[in-house]
Design a protein around this nucleic acid. Sequence first.
RNA 1: CGGGGCGUAGCGCAGCCUGGCAUAGCGCGCCUGGUUUGGGACCAGGAGGUCGUGGGUUCAAAUCCCACCGCCCCGACCA
Length: 577
Amino acid sequence: MRYSRAFIPTLRETPSEAQAISHQLMLRAGLIRPLAAGVYSFLPLGWRVMQKVMRVIREEMDAIGGQEFHFPALNPVEIWQQTGRVDTMGDVLFHIKNREGLLLAPTHEEVVAFHARQHIKSYKDLPQIWYQIQPKFRNEPRPRFGVLRGRQFTMKDSYSLDATWEGLDISYEKHAHAYRRIFQRCGLRFFVVGASSGAMGGSLSQEFMVESPAGEDTCAVCSQCDYAANAEVARSAVDPTPRMPDSQPLERFPTPGVRSIDDLVHRFALPEERCAKALLYIADGRPVMVLLRGNDELNEVKLQAVLGAISLRPASPEELRNYTGASAGSIGPVDLPTPMLIVADERLRDANELVSGANSDGYHYRHIDLQRDCRIDLYADVRTVQMGEPCPECKAPLRIVRAIEVGHIFKLGTKYSEALGAMFLDEHGRECPIIMGSYGIGVERIIAAFIEQNHDERGICWIPTIAPFHVHLVALALERDEAVRQTADTLYEQLGQAGIEVLYDDRNESAGVKFNDADLLGLPLQLIVGPRTVGSGLVEVKERRSDRRHYVAPEQVVETVQRLLAQLSEAGCEIAS
RNA sequence: CGGGGCGUAGCGCAGCCUGGCAUAGCGCGCCUGGUUUGGGACCAGGAGGUCGUGGGUUCAAAUCCCACCGCCCCGACCA
């Protein structure tokens, strides 16, 4: 491609709306342009990257026996009602206004189950892996960070259909393997975490995460072993609260003005680990008290999972007063005026000699014994893991990092097949629901995550696998130096014939402009042809990432470029693994 | 949805507080001509704007007021 004919609108300045580095660079390098909030056009350069990434995905999906489909984005509302997701997904679903009964699909479990119901009749038809790469529509309340969270985005979604749970395990493992290869080949440094299945339902799910400050997920990652988990499910080996040999008699004492555990600790010289913080939540309309140690933080996702609640929110100040008779800071598990479920964090299991609110403003109890003085309905891990806490596997300190979710794999089970009646006959002639898994990759997120991890102050640093072109041919002063023009034209021709994708900067621009654009676009190799080098019978090959430069005769360029691209491709895999 | 901010040329911004000085400026980019050319050149000339939209106040509105729309940020939410 000749740059002079190409539509590559680079920006010298960073657009003010862009916060994340990847967003800034995708705009500046002319990969994308915004069209509306959370909606982006891919320009030719960006679309080339998309296609390269999709090619990798197709190759790996095909390698595990996946068959590519193309499902419509327009879906009948009916099938979504049958699985209940019109309600559970709520506002996230885009509904069509001027045509009753259609919506824009945010994912395709329903459609897959629908077609499976039509044609999968026997265990002999199974297993199947169906996939597609297609736009998805989600009415995100707040799109963010460019293509990292958009209202329309491209997803590779695949669905496994199996006759047995063992079969599901195999399909799931195949996907885990394919995903590892995909992200590796795309040059991502990633880790895999156990995750919450959320409203998708199902038994097991794992997320493929790329560590980045632009990430919207928080993960606990072990600094030594390979333990990693989404904060929604992460554990740590923190000390439990030891039970004292004797429980002193329960004692109510005045604590005027105390609003927090810190107040208690400082004004009454109490050890933090003996303070029990009580929180009041409303789960599906009913009050639940949560007891945590000291300044431990509640993890609402964990609590919701433990309770199996559809909705969960903190109680309002009025509710707090109505249910406990006190305001925040003075509530506790002892002497609750309203009977309610009490959930205590595992860390407080059977503890005694605790201090907690007395459900009366300005008063607390001390010497609380959870076995003697109140009824704990449930002990569960509901706390948020903090930076530096010991790993549950190896006790090394955990790091808490932000991460971008680039892939998510779910063992769904029979939720969707049962709802839509996708049944088959097993070898005993029994009718059984198809066992499903679903597996997603955010294609744009791969690109954004890659840029987050592979850039410097000058621009992007692509690897050959997903670079929009392989080589940036920079010809300097070609308008007035015929030797340069001829050398560059010839090299462009030869490289093209060798199957190497070249972006040929044949513009009549100054050297500085060309170099800066080349570094911004970040193609893996730059081939610099200028009067200086051509005069001495050489051309310069520059590796973008390392800035390493090689000077070779024009006849050796094709071979040199091929060798360096191969090296860089391998290096890309090493970076990733 | 709650809180905050912004909307002036393709991009980045100033002007608004305290209305008139105004034919709405500046830098970058763009067009023409010339000089330049190994890290974002220089000179000269030029094009480009319903100041987000609608309403109101006023002799007079980019500027003050109201409503709406759009965008960004923090939070809530996020299969």
